[in-house]
Design a protein around this nucleic acid. Structure first.
Lengths: 339, 339
DNA sequence: ATTAAGTATGATAACGTTTTCAATAACGTT
DNA sequence: AACGTTATTGAAAACGTTATCATACTTAAT
């Protein structure tokens, strides 16, 4: 009864037909008699035959597999991306093979090569920019469809799905200034050599400048998307003689670090300090007070990335796109709104 | 310069040697002369040769791939499991292929078959119990190593890594009763046909009984791990004439739903109502007030699951284990503690 | 009745590897 | 000088599929 590697040959022998005939049956091709079909299917069932994808892929030169390369699945943002990419491609009958890079450029490079070696049909890639040159080489040499997300790359021949970081930041800061009259708005930032950090900072500055507020370098703390660094950044900011009256956190991790300091030090939001953050993960709305942020677009980004990749895999030609997804502000009490 | 499928044969031809020789070089076998080795490696580099895993796997009868089957990657718990399993097996040179089942039994069954069809070397499975019988068949028929996590299965021939749900619940409720004298403790529960729901409820009841409190069915609301159902459950609970004085949420999603209702209705924690929850994800500690919970063990569970699976794959024999991981309480202000 | 077209099957080759196995060369030992 | 090792290589087979081709049998159309 135990399978442990039944092959077409085994099925063929017992069913008393040839190997190609069995293949035809399980692939539902025409030109198989009803009689044979039934016989074969019954043997397939009896032996618990399952086709072997290695062999199939080798023969078909098609792996039916998509690679997804991200820093960390358990991150709020990347988890969602993986989920929606998986959902999309599962429906298309393709599998997802997952690579966590832990933000390590060496691991990322190995991941890309491995993915290629596995002959994935395409890659969804959230890259750290440091590999840009190597990545260009890989794309040129292997010509595999890649969709980039999260960080913008200055590469041709890839589609990109990005959030409107400049616009999003701008909306948040504009709201703080225009609707609530905050004047010293600090910013806990991601690294500026990643486009998402750089552009979010651009949006922040743009709003300040537009409303005639000074851009004070002391109010900009780079915390590399990390909780603990954000904690320390918050501490520094609030130890200034001339304290900020609002803090903008560029991602959820840093929001958590920031809040940890505020709670430990019993700083009241929004009375002592306003808070806004970029992404609206579900816990953000149940913080006390709920935190103003931008509506989530991660699920949508994943879906669009998957669609673009699928089109490329199917051979659709055309210019490579950079899709920017912008998002509305969700006003909540952390900035003084009364919702 | 473009690769697009360089094979050993191509390398062999240009290097002026035979195919097996190239194979020997890239696999670092002995009995290859230095001269040939150098020549071959230079051609490999020049042509950007990457070995083709399909062919390799077919020949070696080894896929170097692990399947991981879970309801939802972007869930706090499962995201962590996936992360630690990936980390472990990546170091062992194995890939992870990911299946989201969306808690759908049909999808789960297909996922298991697909995984087998891909000849994964083992499976980490967080299953919904409904497939238990089919799962037993699959295991019997294919004899593939499986480690089960999250929910306990009454199956032999699998290792299991579970949290100590009874003990954990007990600790939380005990704390509420013994240290803070709460008397009407409600419970927002997962479904009772999953062991994690059932056992958490057992722990809850055990504590009540032990401290001579009645088990009031009206205070037990099943919200199927979902935010919105937990929201409604909370609403119902707080509309009773005889309101609860504390609520225990069995997972993070339901905590979020519960908190949403509390915030909307300006219910003060812990003055009006105490809250405890099972898992200590990072946002739990920055809620206002921070919520009492049990220390996270998801990362550890993933690691242990991976280790057990690896041992089975390597052929280690021995009794199948059920590893229970228990976890300490983290006391915070949501239940009246003063931390 | 002859032919053409369609239906049903199997033999053979191919996908890209690795693993025998055999052949040859190089080398020291007697 | 004959021999046994050991080192180096290649030819051929195999892994489990699917595609191509050829063959044989039906059926329908003339």
């Amino acid at each position: 009864m135990k399978n442990n590697n039944v092959t077409l040959k085994d099925v063929a022998k017992i069913a008393g037909v040839s190997v190609p005939t069995v293949s035809r049956v399980i692939n539902n091709e025409k030109y198989v008699s009803e009689l044979v079909k039934e016989k074969v299917l019954s043997v397939v069932k009896e032996l618990h035959y399952e086709p072997q994808w290695n062999a199939r892929s080798l023969r078909l030169k098609r792996s039916n597999t998509i690679g997804i390369i991200i820093p960390n699945v358990s991150d709020y943002f990347f988890g969602s991306i993986v989920l929606s990419v998986e959902n999309f491609f599962r429906k298309k009958g393709k599998d997802i093979i997952l690579f966590n890079t832990s933000n390590n450029e060496e691991i990322e490079e190995r991941a890309i090569k491995l993915a290629i070696s596995k002959r994935v049909e395409g890659i969804v890639l959230a890259t750290i920019l440091k590999n840009e040159k190597k990545l260009k080489n890989l794309i040129d040499n292997f010509g595999i469809p890649i969709v980039v997300t999260d960080n913008k790359l200055s590469l041709e021949k890839v589609d990109q799905v990005l959030s409107d970081d400049i616009g999003g930041s701008y909306k948040l800061i504009e709201h703080l200034i225009k609707d609530h009259n905050y004047k010293r708005i600090a910013c806990i930032s991601g690294p500026l050599d990643e486009s998402s950090g750089y552009e979010k900072l651009e949006g922040y500055k743009k709003a300040l400048i537009e409303f005639n507020l000074p851009v004070d370098q002391d109010l900009i703390k780079i915390a590399y998307w990390k909780k603990d660094l954000a904690y320390h950044a918050t501490k520094e900011l609030l130890n200034y003689k001339n304290k900020p009256d609002a803090i903008y956190c560029m991602n959820a991790n840093m929001l958590i670090g920031c809040l940890r300091y505020l709670i430990e030090n019993k700083i009241n939001v929004p009375d002592d300090l306003a808070i806004v953050t970029f992404d609206d993960y579900d816990f953000v709305s149940v913080l006390n007070p709920p935190v103003t942020s931008l509506k989530r677009i991660d699920i949508e980004m994943g879906k669009i990335a998957a669609e673009l990749l699928f089109d490329r895999i199917e051979g659709k030609v055309g210019d490579y796109k950079i899709v920017r997804i912008s998002s509305d502000i969700v006003k909540r009490r952390s900035c003084g709104c009364n919702f």
